[in-house]
C-alpha cells in the first residue's frame, strides 16, 4: 500500500547500516578483549587500523539521514527514525572507539603477565557484548521491552566496574611496581563501563523512536 517506495527503501537502508555498524562495533570489542587475554599485539594493531571502517559507516549514516530529511521531509515516526539513526550511529561509533582504546592498552601492557586473573574484566565484557546484541535486536524489532532490559544489564556492568576498581586499587597499594599495568587495566574497565552506558543511550533512543516519548534509563 506504500506510495513512497524509494523513501521506504532509503529508510530500511538506513536501518541496515545501523545494524552493520552495531555488528562491527560488537565484533571489534570482542576481538579487543580476546587480544587482551592473549596479549595479542598484532591483532590489537589490526583493530586500530580497521576502526576507520566504523567512522566511514557512521558518516554514511549521517549523510543519508541528511539527504532523507532534505529530500523526503519525513514526519512523525519516520522523522524520529532518522534522528534516532544519527544518534545511535554516534553511540555505536564511540563503542568501536573503545575497542580501539582497549587495543591500545593491550599494546601498552605488552607481554607482562597480569597482576591477577582478569575474570572481572571478562565478565564486564560479556555483559556489554550481550547488551550490544540485545540492543541491535531491540532496534531491528522495535521492541521496547528488550530496550528496557538493557538498563538492568547496565546496572550489573556498573557494579562489576566498582568492584574491579576496588580490587585493582588494593593490589596497587601492595605492588607499586605494577602500577602502569594496573592503570591500563582500570582504563579498560572504564572503557567497558562507558561502552555499556552508550548501549543504554541507544536503548533510550529506541524507546523514543517507537513511542515518541522519552524514558530515562540511565538511573
Amino acid at each position: 500500500m506504500s506510495v513512497r517506495e524509494r523513501y521506504e527503501a532509503d529508510l530500511s537502508e538506513l536501518n541496515r547500516k545501523i545494524v552493520e555498524l552495531g555488528t562491527f562495533a560488537q565484533n571489534a570489542l570482542d576481538r579487543s578483549l580476546k587480544a587482551l587475554e592473549n596479549h595479542d599485539i598484532e591483532d590489537s594493531l589490526l583493530i586500530m587500523d580497521e576502526d576507520i571502517k566504523a567512522n566511514r559507516i557512521e558518516e554514511e549514516i549521517n549523510d543519508q539521514a541528511i539527504l532523507l530529511i532534505a529530500k523526503q521531509q519525513p514526519v512523525a515516526t519516520d522523522l524520529r527514525r532518522v534522528i534516532a539513526a544519527i544518534k545511535i550511529a554516534a553511540d555505536l561509533e564511540r563503542i568501536a572507539d573503545f575497542a580501539v582504546n582497549i587495543a591500545k592498552s593491550t599494546i601498552r601492557i605488552g607481554n607482562d603477565p597480569f597482576v591477577k586473573p582478569i575474570e572481572n574484566i571478562h565478565q564486564m565484557h560479556l555483559q556489554t557484548s550481550t547488551m550490544i546484541e540485545l540492543v541491535l535486536e531491540a532496534f531491528m524489532e522495535e521492541d521496547v521491552v528488550k530496550a528496557k532490559r538493557i538498563a538492568e544489564l547496565d546496572d550489573k556492568v556498573d557494579s562489576l566496574y566498582g568492584q574491579t576498581i576496588q580490587e585493582l586499587l588494593s593490589i596497587s597499594a601492595n605492588s607499586p611496581d605494577k602500577l602502569p599495568q594496573i592503570t591500563q587495566l582500570s582504563f579498560i574497565c572504564r572503557y567497558l563501563e562507558r561502552a555499556a552506558d552508550h548501549v543504554t543511550n541507544i536503548s533510550e533512543n529506541i524507546f523514543y523512536l517507537v513511542k515518541g516519548t522519552r524514558y530515562e534509563l540511565n538511573k
Binding site: S2, V3, T77, D78, T213
Partner: peptide, 18 residues
C-alpha cells in the same frame, strides 16, 4: 500531530503513505 500522532491513519497520511 506531526511528531507523534495517536492514530495510525494520521501517521500514514502525514508521512505520505496514502
Amino acid at each position: 500531530i506531526f511528531s507523534n500522532p495517536s492514530d495510525k491513519r494520521t501517521e500514514d497520511y502525514i508521512s505520505g503513505r496514502f
